[in-house]
C-alpha cells in the first residue's frame, strides 16, 4: 500500500518536473519573441508618426532638438565607421593569431596564449572606454594634432582588441578542425608546411573564417559603452575618423540617461534605433552561424 503510494507520487512528480523543465527550455524562445514584440510595438508607434521613408532617407538625426530630423543614416554611418576601423585591424590580427596557434604553436604555447587572449574578452567595456578616451586618444593626438577629443579612430582601434578574441578563437577552432587528411594530401604531394597552411588548410577553412569575421563584426556594431565614452554624442554623417560621431548604441544610452518621458516620440526613437541594430546584428549572426555550421558538417563528413 505504502509502496504503491510512493510510486504514484514519483509518477506525478515526474510529470510535474517534465512540465517545469519544458517551461525553462521555452524561456529562450519566449525571450526571442519578447525582444521582437517589445521592440516592434514601440517601433510601430514611432513609424506611425515618422514615415519609414524619412527614417531611411533623411540625412540628419536630431530628434532631441527643436527642429526634428529622423534620418537613421548618420547613426548607422557612425556605427559602421567605428566597427570598420576595428575590423581593418582585428581581421588580419585574428587570422594571424588563429593560424599560428592552430598550425604552428606547440601545445604548451597554445595553452599559455589562449587564456591570455580570452582575458581581453573578459575586460568590462567601460574599462576599454576609459582606456580609449584617456590613453589612446591623447597618444594619437601627439601624432595627429587635428584629432578631436571624441573621435571614431581611437575607439575603433580599441574595439579591434575587444573583438579580437571572438575572431581569433572562432577561426582557430575551425582551422584546428580541418581534417588531417587534407594536410597529409598536401604534404604528400611535396608541399612545404607553409604552402600546406596557406594553400590547403586556410582555403578549406575559409568559409569558417569568414563566419568568425561576421560574428566579430556583429559584436563590434553592438558594442556600447566603449563607443559611448570615446566616440562622442554627435550624429555626424561622415567617414572622417578624426571627427566626433555617434553610434546607434551610444544614442540609446544618451536617451536612457536623459529625462525623456515614457510614451513620447523621443522615447520611441530608441526602440526604432534598437530595432534597426537588432535586425543588422541578426543578419550577420544568422549568416555567420549558417556558414560555420555548414563547414563543420562538411568536416565531419570528411572525417
Amino acid at each position: 500500500m505504502k509502496a504503491e503510494k510512493s510510486t504514484r507520487w514519483a509518477h506525478w512528480q515526474e510529470k510535474i518536473v517534465v512540465v517545469l523543465l519544458f517551461a525553462s527550455a521555452s524561456v529562450s524562445v519566449i525571450t526571442t519573441l519578447a525582444i521582437a514584440i517589445s521592440l516592434g510595438i514601440e517601433a510601430i508607434g514611432f513609424f506611425r508618426e515618422v514615415p519609414l521613408i524619412r527614417f531611411l532617407t533623411e540625412r540628419e538625426w536630431t530628434p532631441l532638438f527643436e527642429i526634428k530630423k529622423f534620418g537613421i543614416l548618420p547613426l548607422v554611418c557612425g556605427t559602421f565607421l567605428v566597427a570598420g576601423i576595428a575590423m581593418i585591424l582585428a581581421v588580419p590580427f585574428g587570422i594571424f593569431i588563429a593560424t599560428y596557434l592552430a598550425e604552428y604553436a606547440s601545445e604548451r604555447i597554445r595553452r599559455f596564449l589562449k587564456p591570455v587572449i580570452e582575458v581581453l574578452a573578459g575586460i568590462p567595456s567601460v574599462l576599454y572606454g576609459y582606456f580609449a578616451l584617456l590613453f589612446v586618444t591623447p597618444l594619437l593626438q601627439k601624432f595627429i594634432p587635428s584629432l578631436s577629443g571624441f573621435n571614431a579612430l581611437s575607439p575603433g582601434i580599441v574595439l579591434a582588441f575587444m573583438v579580437l578574441p571572438t575572431i581569433a578563437s572562432l577561426s582557430e577552432d575551425i582551422i584546428y578542425a580541418v581534417p588531417q587528411s587534407i594536410r597529409e594530401a598536401s604534404l604528400a604531394l611535396g608541399a612545404t608546411k607553409l604552402q600546406t597552411t596557406f594553400r590547403a588548410v586556410l582555403p578549406a577553412a575559409s568559409s569558417g573564417i569568414i563566419a568568425a569575421c561576421l560574428l566579430g563584426f556583429s559584436r563590434a556594431i553592438g558594442e556600447t559603452m566603449l563607443v559611448t565614452i570615446a566616440a562622442g554624442q554627435q550624429p555626424n554623417l561622415t567617414l572622417n575618423p578624426l571627427e566626433p560621431i555617434q553610434t546607434m548604441t551610444a544614442y540609446i544610452v544618451q536617451v536612457s540617461l536623459g529625462d525623456v518621458p515614457h510614451g513620447s516620440l523621443e522615447y520611441r526613437t530608441i526602440f526604432a534605433v534598437g530595432l534597426t541594430l537588432f535586425l543588422l546584428t541578426l543578419v550577420f549572426n544568422i549568416f555567420g552561424l549558417f556558414l560555420r555550421e555548414r563547414l563543420i558538417r562538411t568536416f565531419q563528413r570528411l572525417g
Binding site: 525582444i35 521592440l39 560574428l215 553592438g222 556600447t224 540609446i252 537588432f278 546584428t281 552561424l289
Partner: peptide, 14 residues
C-alpha cells in the same frame, strides 16, 4: 545560438 549574439543593449531595451 542566436540569442548569444544579440547585443547587450538590446537586452536592456527588452
Amino acid at each position: 545560438s542566436n540569442l548569444a549574439g544579440i547585443p547587450a543593449i538590446i537586452y536592456g531595451l527588452l
